[in-house]
Design a protein around this nucleic acid. Structure first.
Lengths: 224, 224
DNA sequence: GAACTATACGAACGATCGTGCTACGTTCGG
DNA sequence: CCGAACGTAGCACGATCGTTCGTATAGTTC
């Protein structure tokens, strides 16, 4: 019977702290996280919060893990329900944009912010952020490779994945910094143009939204 | 005679501080800037540095201005030497990538980092960052519009500018976070494919580097 | 029951933060 | 030459930081 009431209580407290920590970090960064602030906002003692994680760095690493779980549940997992190939590739793009636009984290994409924050600093936090960011980049790439292998798109999979990831992150950056939703609309147009199927099977995945606005003379695709 | 020895001395000190401040901020963020750290590293007194700017927020704003000047001198100004239209559009892309890759700021693009840092925080620093970022986005857009007007490319100028800006920022993010130069190569391939001229006049601007690697079967452009 | 473990608290630590105040040069305008 | 302006340093303040210590409490295991 691995039911330990003490550990269960501790895990509940850890979840409570981490739920707040991911929101704070998405706005003020992982360095802006402070034990005292978290304790005050959650009406706990600073030393109690500290004891739950052992050090600030461990709190930061736990915050990254918690954010990664939330990210996966909003972006990666639902995308797997779409059919492999182009539908899934469209789904992961749309799910990512929706995840950013709905402000699952109040500061926009968590990993965009902490990635920019720790990109040039060494240490375990940097490595954890890079690993998390890299795992999602790998997921996009594998999904793109699948779409190419299945003949749904004719492109270099790695380059296509890079472009799609770039468009999403740019939309997040512009939208959070300047407000409004224009950046998301631009990203969706660019992604749609890039993911026009080569032949048939245009079946939209789980969340491919906005089938509207097919007009707009020359949606920019035949520039070669 | 606008020669005031006192003000001249003060400006020299301000430049000394700001030169260090932009480098520190590009790695540790504008919030990671501290008067004490700057004073210690520059062997000045903390109160002296403080008096030069009046407040930390003023130091942050001055740091943004100093970084903007450096950015313009490396990216915007040299791009204006290229011929209007497609050559200039190619030049601004390449100059931006070179600015990021050469680590003009040790933490990569200054405005990418502080943009992500202050995107969701209110205040004057946010507004200054948004204005600086927006002014460069406007420059790309205007350059793209010029290329479209001149018939050098057939595309939606706003969307094209968004895509190019997105590709550059993604390359910066990936390269700084993970090291290596692969992200820059991917961005250059994507930009080159996007900026294939519609007819003639492919004259490369001032800094369009890497005319190599024209091979690579199907450089992904005819996916529509 | 005792022995042990884990959560949680309160108090305190040394360090650093941004910010004042004071004082001393240097340099300007009159 | 004199008073004002500016740069610069020294010192101290209140606040907050991460961390440590001692202790009380609740749960598990014997």
């Amino acid at each position: 019977m691995p039911v330990d009431g003490r550990i269960a209580r501790g895990d509940a407290s850890r979840r409570l702290v981490l739920r707040r920590a991911v929101d704070v970090a998405s706005v003020d960064g992982l360095a802006g996280l402070s034990l005292g602030r978290l304790a005050t906002e959650l009406e706990l003692s600073k030393s109690g919060v500290f004891a739950l994680f052992g050090s600030k760095e461990e709190l930061q690493l736990a915050t990254i893990d918690a954010a990664l779980e939330i990210f996966r549940s909003h972006v990666v997992t639902p995308s797997r329900e779409a059919a492999p190939g182009l539908p899934r590739l469209r789904a992961v793009c749309e799910n990512w944009l929706a995840y950013s636009e709905k402000r699952v984290f109040p500061g926009g994409c968590f990993f965009f912010n902490v990635g920019a924050e720790f990109d040039a600093r060494p240490g375990r936090v940097h490595d954890a952020v890079a690993a998390a960011s890299g795992s999602f980049a790998a997921f996009i790439r594998e999904t793109a490779e699948e779409a190419v292998t299945l003949g749904h798109v004719d492109a270099d999979a790695e380059l296509l994945a890079f472009e799609l990831h770039a468009l999403g992150r740019a939309a997040n950056a512009d939208a959070v910094l300047n407000g409004g939703t224009r950046a998301y609309a631009l990203a969706r147009r660019a992604i749609r143009a890039r993911l026009a199927s080569v032949s048939g099977a245009p079946g939209s995945g789980t969340a491919a939204a906005s089938p509207r606005r097919s007009g707009r003379a020359g949606d920019r695709e035949g520039s070669a």
